[in-house]
Design a protein around this nucleic acid. Structure first.
Length: 280
DNA sequence: AGCGGATGTACAG
DNA sequence: TGTACCTCCGCTT
């Protein structure tokens, strides 16, 4: 259930574990047996994330394309792979590491034309240093859609998901319902710069942390209930540890102004905001 | 032990 | 707009 930061995190771990080594692939579950056989034994040359998409370059102009969707997970470890348990779509192994992939929306082999088509349909990714924010600005400045919708559009902002959308709008004091045409360069630039910062920092540990350190002392007490509800990642496994201003905090007091955080459904996703801090 | 909900996307209609 | 995908976790029982 990852946003782009987690995909970049996995890409880095897979690079460190498998790059420049011959990788054995299999599909214990059986649903990717053909693709695994096609790539089995090839050398991994690169592992890169583009938004929420992961591409593993096995040379020969073929790439393994993985999208985790809502449910997908990676488990990466050292040594020999454990005996398969449950549904493992794809397993990678070399002399030193193993990786298990479960529940992805997409796990397929692409040729170069298919790879190029994929990259052409996703927008600039704030985590990538080669991203061009002007491509996103060109879409935003002429759209009458609410900025909350545009932020979730992967053709405009690749890798942004429901948490980063809510949090970056709160941090920049922008109403989620303001139309793209009314955002203006100054606010767009602030949003982009903040996404670069938040998402890049979220990549190192694969976690989303959006609360400014300066605000932490004043809200420490208020964070605890979120932790007990599993939102702030107090769990032992701490999979997607989150410290958030508004995400899943509906009905509770805004950390900065005490106004009750609101929630609504926008295009089948839950949207959270502070009606006072984000009045317009 | 069982239930509902979740950081996502595609497709039907 | 709704549904399918099909995993993990926290919460309830």
């Amino acid at each position: 259930m990852p946003e782009g930061n987690v995909i970049h995190y996995h890409a880095r771990r897979l690079r460190r574990a498998f790059r420049r080594s011959a990788v054995r692939l299999d599909s214990p579950q059986g649903r990717f047996s053909e693709g695994a056989a096609l790539l089995n034994g090839l050398t991994l040359h690169a592992a890169d994330a583009y938004g929420k998409h992961l591409l593993l370059d096995f040379g020969d102009l073929r790439w393994l394309h993985i999208h985790l969707g809502l449910f997908g997970t990676w488990r990466i470890g050292t040594g020999a792979p454990p005996a398969p348990t449950g549904q493992i779509r794809l397993r990678l192994r070399n002399e030193t590491h193993f990786a298990e992939l479960r529940g992805p929306t997409t796990c397929e082999v692409l040729d170069i034309a298919q790879r190029d088509a994929l990259l052409a349909r996703i927008g600039p990714d704030p985590i990538r240093t080669d991203a061009d924010p002007l491509l996103a600005w060109a879409r935003v400045e002429r759209s009458r859609q609410p900025i909350a919708t545009l932020l979730m559009d992967q053709r405009i902002f690749a890798g942004v998901g429901n948490i980063y959308r809510a949090e970056v709008l709160f941090r920049q004091n922008i109403s989620p319902f303001r139309a793209g045409v009314d955002v203006g360069w100054s606010d767009f630039h602030a949003l982009w710069v903040d996404l670069v910062d938040l998402m890049s920092r979220g990549t190192s540990r694969g976690r989303i942390m959006t609360v400014r350190p300066a605000d932490l002392p004043t809200i420490r007490g208020a964070v605890a209930p979120a932790a007990s509800r599993g939102i702030a990642g107090a769990g032992r496994r701490g999979r997607y540890d989150t410290r958030a201003y508004v995400y899943r905090r509906d009905g509770r007091a805004c950390f900065l102004c005490d106004t009750s955080i609101e929630v609504t459904t926008l295009q089948a996703r839950r949207l959270y905001w502070c009606p006072a801090c984000q009045a317009s």
